[in-house]
Nucleic acid binder design. Structure first.
Length: 574
RNA sequence: GCGCCCGUAGCUCAGUCGGAUAGAGCAUCAGCCUUCUAAGCUGAGGGUCGCUGGUUCGAUUCCAGCCGGGCGCACCA
């Protein structure tokens, strides 16, 4: 299921009307365009609108209005589904759905529970999502936080529509950065022992380096004298790596992110997988030697130029490891590879897609989700970040300051390809105004209803037990319509790798809930003193209470499901 | 110079497989708690959808050019 019950029935009805018209010779097209049902902006335009008639106009060589007319004439079960079917101006088909059909949505949500919104579009297909993959040379910073939030949400979205998803972290535990890390820690280590040595050029200056050096010093205290400087530096490198990777795991954990898989670059080199991957390219005639270096003929597949994979000095480039890594991903049998990249790596996309093609796969096998870097502000002033000078705001600091839920929601509020301004002072200072609380509050408010209801001995009925036909108020139907759109939001969001659509949807749903909550009562007043005092007040009968409790339960369920997809908690109290 | 991303309300941003009078939050102003959580609600003001052309019955959405901002163009990772 990828549509709500209502949308499904309407789509089916429209399609059979189109088919009926074709059989009668009124329409001639052999295939119909995708039937998308929009929720019109204005209430008088009905509940759902279709533009099929207009999009068929040119191919049918008929006026849109006439086509719409033909469709309407051929609608078979019209009275069971629609209250009103209107054709407007150029050829809009404005459909008003019977409340009874809308009420079915509540049965759907009630029966499916946490599964509401799931689909089987990706069933049987395996996806590998690689994200974060920060070098273990320092703590994660804010940009990684955004990548982590987006990567996790993409994983969960795809899993929700049926894909078999694995989230993987590629650990760059080999090469130059590791050597620099070791040398930097070693230098600090020596300083702690009262010896001064030249700090490596391009080394890591962050204070965490000294902290790590101190820890290593405590650990190596007894054996230090037995180690040669060379061994000592190697120990520094190994221990610093372990320490920093551990820090990264901890940071991710406190951010609520868990990877199913950690993949080490070093293992590719040790197992000669890099050589093998390159050999395969050589066999395919895609590797050539020039000026003492080996090149990958990526320009053959649309890259702007060929790329070095093995340098004159015999060392592999980073790209060589990456080729082997992606070769390995393909070997592991994933149908789709998704890489969540920082936008500063966008130039890397063509050569990675060239790798796909070099191994005989369509370039679409690799999909890239670009995440723009976060522009960090503190009190309106931009904070420049650089690992080299060690001055940057870590992801940990952000989590500590604004909380994991708020940070995630913030990261997932906008399209990941756009720049994100993140003002720490603002986020801290107005933390109660953060939109995440708005959504969570809607959820907590409903939970509060359950508590009060139970105190008063009011039972919470299932959708089947309640008489839902009393739900005819526009606000009630409005909420139901919103709930019925959820499956499509999830599907569209997943297929486009755009979690922010879910965030946006949740804000809208929460807004409708808050409006409803302020305007209507679910439970009858505690004291039955003055029902008559406010003449306009609606009478909350037990029947109405029962139906509204079902409605509230459905809203709560969808809020929870949506937050779950985003990796954000749905608190019961606030 | 070439390539990618972005340009929508004072600010931060949604919306665009082409559709009917372009939306939200923040900020500003005016209101709403003796009743289910006011972390909430109601109302008001605020727009040449960067500019110019093109395609179309219809363009904020697609195409081209230009302007402005960001990023990338290593035998670094």
């Amino acid at each position: 299921m990828s549509q709500g019950v209502v949308q499904e029935k309407v789509t089916t009805a429209l399609l059979s009307a189109l088919d009926g018209a074709r059989q009668k010779g009124q329409l001639k097209a052999t295939a119909w365009p995708a039937l998308t049902l929009d929720a019109p902006k204005r209430p008088e335009w009905g509940d759902l609108a279709s533009t099929v008639a207009m999009s068929l106009a040119s191919s049918e060589q008929k006026a849109p209005h006439d086509i719409a007319q033909i469709i309407v004439e051929n609608l078979s079960q019209r009275d069971q589904i629609f209250d009103r079917v209107e054709i407007v101006r150029p050829g809009f088909l404005n459909l008003t759905i019977k409340p009874a059909l809308w009420q079915e949505v509540l049965h759907e949500v009630g029966e499916q529970g946490t599964r509401y919104g799931q689909a089987n579009i990706g069933t049987g297909r395996r996806v590998l999502v690689e994200y974060v993959s920060a070098n273990p040379t320092g703590p994660l910073h804010v940009g990684h936080g955004r990548g982590a939030a987006v990567g996790q949400a993409v994983c969960r979205l795809l899993a929700t529509i049926g894909y078999d998803v694995v989230g993987e972290y590629y650990v760059n535990d080999a090469g130059r950065q590791m050597k620099l890390l070791g040398a930097s820690v070693y230098a600090r280590y020596q300083e702690l022992s009262g010896r001064t040595i030249d700090f490596p050029e391009d080394g890591y200056h962050g204070t965490y380096i000294t902290a790590v050096a101190q820890q290593i010093r405590d650990q190596l205290d007894r054996v230090e004298g037995e180690l040669t400087p060379r061994d000592l530096e190697a120990r520094c490198r190994a221990l610093a790596y372990q320490e920093l990777l551990g820090l990264i795991r901890d940071d991710l954990k406190s951010f609520g992110i868990e990877f199913q898989s950690w993949f080490s670059e070093a293992t590719l080199l040790e197992s000669k997988a890099v050589e093998r991957a390159l050999d395969e390219l050589k066999t395919r005639g895609l590797l050539f030697e020039q000026e003492g270096a080996w090149w990958f003929r990526s320009s053959k597949y649309g890259d702007e130029k060929d790329r070095v994979v093995r340098k004159q000095d015999g060392e592999f480039t980073y790209l060589a490891s990456d080729i082997a890594y992606h070769h390995d991903k393909l070997r592991r049998g994933y149908d789709v590879l998704i890489n969540v990249f920082g936008a500063d790596h966008h130039g890397y996309i063509p050569r990675m897609q060239a790798v796909m093609q070099a191994y005989g796969h369509p370039k679409e096998r690799l999909q890239v989700v670009l995440v723009q870097l976060v522009k960090l502000l503190r009190g309106g002033v931009e904070v420049k970040m650089s690992k080299r000078t060690g001055e940057f705001i870590t992801m940990r600091e952000v989590i500590d300051e604004v909380g994991a839920d708020a940070a995630k929601f913030y990261f997932l509020m906008r399209d990941s390809t756009t720049h994100l301004e993140f003002d720490l002072e603002l986020a801290k200072q107005r933390s109660a105004d953060n939109p995440v609380y708005y959504v969570q509050y809607a959820h907590a408010r409903i939970c509060s209803l359950w508590r009060v209801a139970s105190e008063r001995g009011i039972a919470r009925p299932s959708a089947a037990e309640a008489d839902l036909t009393v739900l005819t108020d526009p606000d009630e139907l409005g909420l139901i319509k919103k709930l019925s759109a959820y499956p499509e939001v999830i599907q569209a969001s997943a297929l486009a790798f755009e979690p922010h659509r879910v965030t946006y949807y949740l804000q809208q749903l929460a807004a409708q809930l808050h409006t409803f909550y302020n305007k209507h009562r679910v439970l009858p007043p505690a004291t039955d003193q003055e029902h008559d005092e406010t003449a306009a007040a609606e009478i909350v009968t037990s029947k109405r209470t029962a139906a509204r409790l079902v409605l509230m339960g459905a809203v709560q369920q969808v809020l929870r499901n949506g937050l779950e997809v985003l990796g954000i908690s749905a608190p019961e109290h606030m």
